[in-house]
Design a protein around this nucleic acid. Structure first.
Lengths: 237, 237
DNA sequence: CCAAAAGTGTTAACCGTACACCCATGC
DNA sequence: GCATGGGTGTACGGTTAACACTTTTGG
């Protein structure tokens, strides 16, 4: 007997939802969409959508990000699949959650209004529909966990950035503050930054040197572990 | 306009697959099932199944483990969702992969033959159907990654175990060997083990003390990070 | 000249690793 | 009594973290 079909099994909708993080220089932000139709009209949700018949969940997430930000090749990590039977009251839907990290300056303008989307401070985002608040919690934990050892937060910064900006980014994620001498020594000893001659002069009289990522070393890291966070057990999970 | 249904979207099957690890005292093993029906007859696969209409993927994984091992409350981590459109040639199926850690001595007997299941040495498992080899690779990486900092490998050992057994377990996972003096100092300083008076005398004349987990401290770890692996960057990812 | 932020060096504590010998027992 | 595996302590080196002053320049 050859099985050519799986009879009697339940088919269901499969969606992806993206927790899109940005950093404005001082605070972590998250991109949320306001639903324009019932039954969730005016409520906020993550950016998401159903997956199509001929694409993977990763492709679906990239497609949705392209549509909402105009951006291709966004940094994406699949983090968890949410499957409670009642999570979408309309119809059973499984959702695969992704963390997306984008440079907030590049995409800010095109998005807002076009899709009813808005950046929110992570700490005062509105309550979201379905289990999207759980997804955001999971994403925050994931990001803290992974960033303690992997250099992925650079995805949130522009091409050129200063050490004080980078430090503010880490301090924002872990809601703590670091000694700047130790921080700069550590991050520079990782050997993935190149100092430019140019200085950023907006936020101080003296000006801070711009740095840029050494793409070779970043993409082929000899040492994937950064350890920028002292005492990770204080902050991670 | 109220939306009461999602029209025009593709419904699909959702499955779970479990990468079930065991440790026989010397080697890591993995539990595989031999398919008894076409079109994959005689080929090996992971333990899995479709999820039902009224359960989460976690519940489905527990249900399948209960059926195949008789065991409830097995240690389970959701690791990744596999969604390539052609991964199951019969019909499009999304699969959520789980790592399961079980005490091989407890469940060995009931399983074998009942479900055409068998333990294989991880290093010489047969080729598996679909993308199950990818799942096993992902699971191995996940386990190395997580075990470097979290005390989860105890799930693979019986109630009572010796330090040499515990060390062999870690050495097996990372395919390396550790200095036993450093290893025992580290693991004991974590404060989650209780030494019993009893000794294990099978594998040596002198006998090795049995230890057991301090459940309180294990379940409410003050310090979740073990750091049993020196130079994690050598071994992890 | 003063305020504000950037940049830089030293020291002490701790952690990680290497390393070697004695112990207990069954044969 | 000897072979086998179990158990233990020390010392060195590297890493981490704590700490304060000088530099630059716009106003």
């Amino acid at each position: 007997m050859k099985i050519r079909s799986y009879k009697g099994q339940t088919r269901m909708l499969v969606a992806v939802d993206c927790i899109i993080f940005g950093f404005d220089g001082n605070n972590f932000k998250i991109l949320l969409a306001q639903k324009s139709f019932a039954p969730e009209k005016d409520k906020y949700s993550l950016m998401g959508g159903f997956i199509w018949a001929e694409e993977t969940v990763e492709e679906a997430a990239q497609r949705i990000l392209k549509r909402l930000t105009g951006l291709e090749g966004v940094y994406l990590d699949q983090i968890h699949t949410f499957s409670a039977p009642g999570r979408d009251p309309v119809e059973r839907t499984i959702s695969v959650a992704f963390v997306a990290l984008i440079d907030i300056h590049k995409y800010e303008k095109q998005i807002i209004h076009e899709y009813n989307a808005d950046w929110f401070l992570l700490q005062d985002k509105p309550k979201l529909i379905f289990d999207h608040d759980d997804m955001v919690d999971t994403a925050k934990k994931y990001l803290r966990y992974k960033a303690a050892m992997h250099p992925l937060l650079f995805e949130l910064l522009p091409e050129k950035f200063t050490l004080p900006q980078l430090q503010a980014l880490y301090e924002g994620l872990y809601e703590t503050s670091f000694d700047k001498r130790n921080f700069s020594r550590k991050v520079l000893s990782a050997g993935i930054l190149i100092r430019l001659d140019e200085k950023e002069k907006e936020s101080s009289k003296k000006g801070a040197y711009y740095f840029t990522l050494d793409k070779n070393k970043y993409l082929n890291p000899s040492k994937d572990f950064l350890n920028l966070i002292p005492n990770p057990e204080k902050h991670v999970y």
